[in-house]
Deep mutational scan, measured.
Amino acid sequence: VRLVQFQKNTDEPMGITLKMNELNHCIVARIMHGGMIHRQGTLHVGDEIREINGISVANQTVEQLQKMLREMRGSITFKIVP
């Protein structure tokens, strides 16, 4: 398990697509080339996201998580399992 932190201070999309796997874990499905996450190089396709800013992603839908990420500003921390 590791923590990945980055800054999001604009309306620029993060450039990641999330999916739920068969165990209902949140997985990074795709990283858009040239997007914020791609430029930082901190997340990778297949990484499992456990928490966003200390909030568990368990029992949340992809749509709920994407909305939460769109609305966040400032420092964002993901707890991930590579």
Rank of each mutant, 00 (worst) to 15 (best):
E22G: 14
Q40D: 09
G34V: 03
Q66A: 10
A29C: 04
R30W: 06
K19L: 11
Q64R: 09
V45N: 04
D47N: 02
I55S: 11
N53D: 04
E48A: 07
Q40G: 07
Q64M: 10
L23W: 13
D47W: 00
A29F: 03
I37L: 07
H33T: 13
L3K: 11
R39H: 06
F6L: 15
N9D: 14
Q66C: 09
F78I: 10
T42I: 09
R73N: 15
M14L: 13
E12I: 07
G74C: 02
T42L: 13
E71I: 10
D47T: 01
N53K: 01
I49E: 00
S75D: 15
I80E: 00
M68E: 10
E63S: 11
K79W: 02
K19F: 10
H38K: 06
N21P: 03
L69F: 07
T77A: 11
I80C: 08
N53T: 02
H44S: 13
L23F: 10
E22Q: 14
E51T: 03
V62D: 11
Q64V: 09
I76H: 02
G74S: 03
V1N: 15
M14H: 04
I31V: 09
M68K: 13
E71P: 05
L69I: 08
F78L: 13
E63W: 06
N24M: 04
E12N: 04
T61M: 04
M32L: 08
M20E: 03
K79M: 06
M36S: 15
C26I: 15
L3M: 06
M20F: 14
S56N: 11
Q66S: 12
G46H: 02
L65S: 05
R39S: 10
R73K: 14
K79R: 09
G54W: 02
K8G: 04
P82M: 04
I27E: 09
N59P: 05
H25S: 09
P13V: 10
V1R: 05
R30L: 04
M68P: 02
V4Y: 05
I27Q: 07
G41S: 07
N9R: 11
Q40L: 09
M20L: 12
Q7C: 14
T42H: 09
G35T: 12
R30V: 05
R39A: 11
Q40K: 09
A58K: 15
M72N: 06
Q64D: 14
R50G: 03
Q60E: 08
C26T: 06
E48M: 05
V45S: 04
I80Y: 05
F78K: 00
Q66P: 02
L65M: 09
T77Y: 06
I80M: 05
I76P: 02
Q7E: 15
E51A: 07
I49T: 02
G34E: 06
T61L: 03
A58Y: 09
Q66G: 10
L69M: 11
V62H: 06
I37V: 14
A29L: 05
N53Q: 05
I31E: 01
G46F: 01
T77E: 11
E12G: 09
I80V: 14
G34M: 04
L43R: 01
H38A: 11
I76S: 02
V28A: 02
F78R: 01
V62P: 11
N59K: 08
V28K: 00
E12Y: 04
E63P: 11
H33P: 14
I27H: 12
E12K: 07
M36G: 09
M68V: 11
R70S: 12
M14N: 03
L23T: 15
R70K: 12
V4S: 03
V28Q: 01
T10R: 09
K79H: 13
Q66D: 12
E48H: 07
L23V: 14
F6N: 01
M14K: 01
T77V: 07
T77I: 11
V81R: 11
G15A: 03
G35H: 08
I37F: 07
L3I: 15
T61C: 06
P82R: 09
T17G: 11
D11G: 11
V28M: 00
I80K: 01
L43Y: 01
G15T: 01
N59I: 03
Q7R: 11
V28G: 00
R73T: 13
L23R: 15
R2F: 05
Q66I: 07
N53C: 04
I31M: 05
T10M: 13
K67N: 13
N24V: 01
V45Y: 02
N9F: 11
G54F: 10
Q5A: 15
I55C: 14
P82A: 12
I37P: 03
T17H: 15
I37A: 14
I76V: 12
V57Y: 02
V4M: 06
H44A: 13
R30H: 15
L3F: 13
V1H: 04
V28L: 03
R39I: 04
P82D: 10
L23D: 15
I76Q: 01
L65G: 01
Q60C: 12
F6Q: 02
K67T: 13
A58L: 09
H44N: 11
H44D: 11
L3C: 05
C26M: 08
R50D: 03
E22V: 08
V57P: 10
I27D: 00
P13W: 07
M32H: 13
G74D: 06
Q5P: 05
E63T: 07
E12A: 08
I27C: 05
R39C: 05
R73I: 10
V45K: 04
L23Y: 15
K79D: 04
T10S: 14
Q40P: 02
I49Q: 00
I52A: 03
R39N: 15
V57D: 00
V4E: 05
R50F: 04
M36E: 14
G34F: 03
V62R: 07
V4G: 01
E51V: 01
N59C: 06
V62A: 13
Q60P: 00
K79A: 15
V62M: 09
E12S: 07
F6H: 05
I80H: 02
V62F: 04
Q66K: 06
I27T: 12
R70Y: 10
P13G: 11
M20H: 10
Q60H: 12
E48Y: 04
D11S: 14
M68W: 09
A58S: 11
C26W: 11
M72G: 08
S56W: 04
I55P: 00
K8N: 07
F6V: 15
T77W: 12
T17W: 10
I76D: 01
V1K: 10
R70E: 14
G46T: 00
Q40C: 08
K67P: 04
I55R: 13
D11L: 07
G35Y: 06
V57L: 06
Q5R: 15
H38M: 08
G34A: 04
M68F: 11
I31K: 00
I80N: 01
R70F: 13
H44T: 10
M14I: 15
G35K: 06
V28E: 00
Q40M: 09
H33C: 11
L69E: 02
Q66R: 07
M14E: 03
N24F: 04
G34Y: 02
Q7G: 04
T61N: 14
